[in-house]
């Protein structure tokens, strides 16, 4: 008898979570997806900057005024962010929420505003006290937005939950940019995922094989409701304060979903932000897709 295929999805973290599970019956699949929903809900409750009552939102509004004692979960996450800030030579920086927001308006922000935000932000201006488990922002322009880092944390925890529930073969997609291939496809040795073109969605540039591994894709712009490319100033260079405006994606495959998220973002801004040796020690594969003015799509294997 063939394995059952179960598919569930729901809205989460401003996008959709799609989960394909091999094996469980309907009842178990429903139970598991409810557990996944609860887990993601818990993460959003402390991590989302779009929920005014979240612990992180509270930290963002208070931490410049006073030292804020935070939960162990949030503290550990902030410590991890600090680690990756150093690990990437400051290219991965989650303290740029206000700088990013400045680029979300209808008009280009003034040069002096950008300069001020660049000089007043940076994770080195986030003071973390291990002993008191407290956090303080050293400038009022600091605002923490974990972005894809949060999705990486969520994907890792969902993977642990699925394995605990005995679901050893599954594919998880978070907004199609964070993908976990757990175990393998029922009819093959891995979960094969095609990397598509930026504008030409039918163009399959390469295939990535996931086996108990994670794939994160960072890109400039968004995939809109109809799946097409929509421009956006969503990735900001922390050193210049300006967005990466070339249509481009970087896909990183790693055993660690957080590493995949951190490096896909950092490498999108600066392909050389980390040396090849370190990259190969932390990732299985890195590919960059870019597009010129004539929409010619080019793929570069940064690590293969």
């Amino acid at each position: 008898m063939p394995d059952l295929v179960q598919y569930r999805n729901f809205f989460a973290m401003g996008t959709r979570l799609d989960l394909v599970m091999i094996g469980p019956d309907d009842k178990k699949a429903d139970r598991v997806i409810n557990m996944v929903k609860n887990l993601v809900e818990d993460i959003e409750n402390f991590l989302s900057i779009h929920r005014p009552g979240s612990e992180l939102s509270n930290l963002n509004s208070e931490a410049f005024k006073r030292e804020v004692v935070v939960s162990e979960d949030l503290f550990n996450l902030l410590k991890q962010c600090k680690y990756y800030y150093e690990f990437t030579g400051h290219w991965f920086d989650v303290s740029l929420a206000k700088l990013t927001r400045a680029w979300m308006g209808d008009t280009t922000p003034d040069r002096e505003v950008i300069d001020r935000l660049v000089s007043n932000t940076g994770y080195d201006k986030v003071e973390i006290d291990e002993g008191k488990m407290s956090v303080r922002y050293l400038t009022e322009d600091i605002g923490i937005d974990p972005g894809g880092f949060g999705k990486g944390v969520a994907v890792g925890r969902i993977r642990d939950l699925l394995l605990l529930e005995g679901i050893s073969n599954s594919l998880l997609s978070f907004g199609e940019s964070s993908v976990a291939g757990i175990g393998k496809h029922p009819h093959g040795p891995c979960w094969p995922v095609a990397v598509s073109g930026i504008f030409n969605k039918a163009l399959r540039l390469t295939t990535i094989e996931l086996t108990d591994s994670f794939m994160s894709t960072s890109g400039t712009g968004f995939k809109s409701g109809d799946g097409m490319f929509a421009p956006g100033n969503n990735i900001i260079d922390p050193f210049t304060g300006y967005p990466v405006d070339q249509p481009k994606t970087v896909t990183v495959v790693s055993d660690d979903p957080v590493v995949a998220e951190v490096l896909s973002t950092s490498l999108l801004i600066n392909r050389n932000c980390i040396d090849k040796k370190t990259l190969s020690e932390n990732c299985h594969r890195v590919v960059e897709v870019s597009c010129d003015g004539d929409r010619n799509e080019t793929i570069i294997e940064i690590l293969s």
């Binding site: 401003g14 959709r16 091999i22 997609s173 029922p186 990397v195 598509s196 400039t220 809109s224």
Partner: peptide, 20 residues
């Protein structure tokens, strides 16, 4: 594909999907 025993790459890898 799984239901029809087809092993074929899943066309995903791209930027984040967001609702309208």
């Amino acid at each position: 594909n799984i239901e029809h025993k087809i092993f074929d790459p899943l066309p995903l890898g791209g930027k984040s999907w967001i609702p309208e």
